[in-house]
């Protein structure tokens, strides 16, 4: 079972003050790990380490015991600002990993169509990217990452730029995609409700220097997948209590 291990890492940019100190995090297949924290706490840096875009000053990042030396298709990334390729059609964006691997166009088209259906964009494969809405673009970004069939899915505030209504439906889409792919998932967010709703495990980070101050296991996402409605989950007393508890953790350092 694939295992992404971040062990006691310290990260600094150009020898400055540490952005992350002594931070450890494990992500295994089937887990949905959500990192929350105020801005500037190093959430995105943590994701960039896992993706291989950054290298730690000390400590290690490894997949199944092999040290991560750079980005790879086993750890697909979904970006906040979608980072799609506007010179390619929607379908060509989705099958970009296959194009890099030299898969024949006909096969790529079929694969893209299958993934677009999963993310609810069936039939839009020929659309130029710039004719899609913000929510649709994030769906394409997710489909592009899933197309690489990654062991891990790393998502950096993928819903951060979307309006509230779109975000709600995208949350269910993320849950379904995670459930279906079985990929170990790391999601960065500043939305406490989003974290509770999606995660199997929540990691709370604090800034200056970036570190983990709390970890907790939750099961609201599994309840959603079992068929309970989103509204009944978010209105349930245990959800509300967990939300207040989590907000306390995030802000207590500031009050102290």
């Amino acid at each position: 079972m694939p295992h992404l291990a971040i062990e006691t890492v310290t990260l600094r940019y150009d020898g400055g003050a540490p952005v992350l100190t002594n931070l450890s995090l494990d992500i295994r297949s089937g887990e949905f790990v959500v990192v929350v924290g105020r801005s500037g706490c190093g959430k995105t840096s943590l994701l960039n380490l896992a993706a291989g875009f950054l290298k730690p000053a000390s400590g290690s990042v490894s997949v199944d015991g092999r040290k991560v030396e750079g980005p790879g298709a086993d750890r697909a990334v979904v970006f906040q600002n979608d980072a799609l390729f506007p010179w390619l059609s929607t379908a060509e964006n989705v099958s970009f990993a296959a194009r890099l691997a030299g898969v024949a166009p006909a096969e790529r088209g079929a694969e893209a169509e299958r993934l677009l259906e999963i993310v609810g964009l069936a039939g839009l494969g020929d659309r130029p990217i710039w004719q899609l809405s913000g929510g649709q673009r994030q769906r394409v970004g997710l489909a592009r990452a899933l197309a690489a069939n990654p062991a891990f899915l790393l998502m950096d505030e993928p819903l951060g730029a979307l309006d509230a209504m779109t975000r709600e439906s995208m949350q269910d889409l993320l849950l379904n995609a995670w459930d279906r792919s079985g990929a170990g998932t790391l999601l960065i967010t500043h939305g406490v409700e989003e974290a509770l709703y999606l995660a199997t495990r929540i990691v709370v980070m604090a800034p200056a220097p970036g570190r983990v101050i709390r970890r907790l296991d939750v099961d609201f996402g599994r309840r959603r997948l079992a068929g309970e409605s989103a509204r009944s989950i978010k209105a349930s007393p245990e959800f509300v209590a967990a939300r207040e508890d989590l907000l306390d953790s995030i802000f207590e350092r500031e009050a102290a």
Binding site: G52, G70, A76, N81, A83, A97, R144, A148, L154
Partner: peptide, 11 residues
């Protein structure tokens, strides 16, 4: 981000 996206897809 586009460069990183392509790298993380194996470019």
């Amino acid at each position: 981000d586009r460069v990183n996206a392509a790298r993380s897809l194996g470019a």
